[in-house]
Design a protein around this nucleic acid. Structure first.
Lengths: 234, 234
DNA sequence: ATTTTTTGTAAAAATTTGTTAACAGACGCC
DNA sequence: GGCGTCTGTTAACAAATTTTTACAAAAAAT
């Protein structure tokens, strides 16, 4: 029984360390995404498919601690912090923010691998068990069980593509996402799927969630750019 | 939060360190058992009520590494190793044996507390998944004895393949699994069994577990990808 | 105001899944 | 071993989903 490879996101602005670590982990069969800034990492993390985040604590702009705080607020992804300093305070702050581990550079990559393995074992169980239920415009969206119900409690049946699209939207409220990004999040095919597929799916989601196409309040069109999820989550 | 306090077992032969740590953790509401030898710790661990083990790596007799190896083989308890030495090799061996963490003495107790908290969060989810008797949508599934009963307590008879398939599903809730993976989990054959067999088996499981094929809540199809177990385990 | 670009919509086409039935082999029973 | 029953598998066709296509409508640009 071979499970799908775990997806690990690395945020580290030093290219040498980053690519060395990435290729080391890849050689053990993990799927690795390399990022040099917090923003790029968040874009990948917002898809909600990553299992583990390895973040340098000292980044230009938004640093590892901030990423930790934000991610922990919204997901149960495993987080390992990397740091150049052996600073007690830094370490404690990181751990108290919810990072699962804190490794000081220069780190032994075999040790890091062991920590990655152990943590993935733990998060695998957690991911599916923790329930994430979102509410907007009277609708309830249970992300794990893929169920949507309207204000009356009646179930709204979504197809796979509709579900995936809705998931990307609710995890990125207020963010304009272009069609390429949305396509990347929902398709499972190799070949380039036409971006117009998104328009059709948005239309179907609007129909199912009673969003008036003439004056949409949930899925707003951003002409020339893409779509935005504009419902208020509560 | 969890009603019963987490139970932490400490194995440490130095009395001062041990009792200091124990009372510190107790002051945060944890239930702590102190042991000075591996044997005493194992006696407590064998009851299966402990959530977390904090073990010194250098003990008279059986040491922390040996305890780690033995516990990891039989349970998913969280393990934090303590060591007087900052030895790379020791640390790596400990982590590779499955210890979740490795803390060097003298440790900052606030740091250790943060690690304990984070690890308990992880193991709580894991315990639920490693249970041998699972409950979902009113059904009870005893993995060991292959028995399934519905809400009324009436037995549901599953064939071997159906049972194997259900087992893969419940141990991977929320994870989309493609047909190849599911086939690999249920068939013992080498030759390529048609993946469509999975569809038929899923259909039969749906029928037996009253899962509406038009709007499934237990076995959700992920078009173009496979199937997901989307029932809530409780 | 006209042209160009972009989006909305419906419906067809391609792909994937659901369902039924049939068959071969495994299993238990006598 | 011979017999009947049950299970796993495949095949065939129906149904559903995803994607493409075509054209109308709307928005932006000129």
């Amino acid at each position: 029984m071979s499970p799908r490879p775990a997806h690990i996101v690395i945020v580290e602005d030093e290219p040498v360390t980053r690519s060395a670590l990435a290729s080391y982990l890849e050689s053990f069969g993990y799927r690795v995404s390399e990022c040099d800034t917090a923003e790029k990492a968040e874009k990948i993390l917002s898809q909600g498919t990553a299992d583990l985040l390895i973040a340098d604590i000292n980044l230009q702009g938004k640093d590892g601690l901030e990423i930790t705080r934000e991610q922990r607020a919204r997901s149960e992804i495993g987080i390992i912090l990397l740091s150049g300093r052996t600073d007690d305070v830094d370490r404690i702050v990181g751990l108290e923010l919810g990072a699962d581990d804190y490794v000081c550079k220069p780190f032994n990559r075999r040790e890091l691998l062991a920590r990655v393995k152990n943590l993935l074992r733990r998060t695998a169980a957690m991911r599916a068990l923790t329930r994430r239920v979102l509410h907007f415009n009277g609708f309830t969206f249970d992300v794990g069980s893929r169920q949507v119900t309207n204000a009356a409690g009646e179930p709204i049946v979504l197809t796979r593509a509709e579900y995936e699209l809705l998931r990307v939207f609710v995890f990125n409220p207020g963010t304009v996402m272009d069609r390429d990004r949305l396509i990347a999040a929902i398709t499972h095919r190799q070949d380039g799927t036409s971006t117009r597929t998104i328009d059709v799916l948005v239309q179907r989601l609007r129909a199912k969630l009673d969003d008036d196409p003439k004056a949409p309040r949930i899925f707003t069109t951003s002409h020339g750019e893409g779509y935005v999820f504009t419902a208020l989550l509560d």
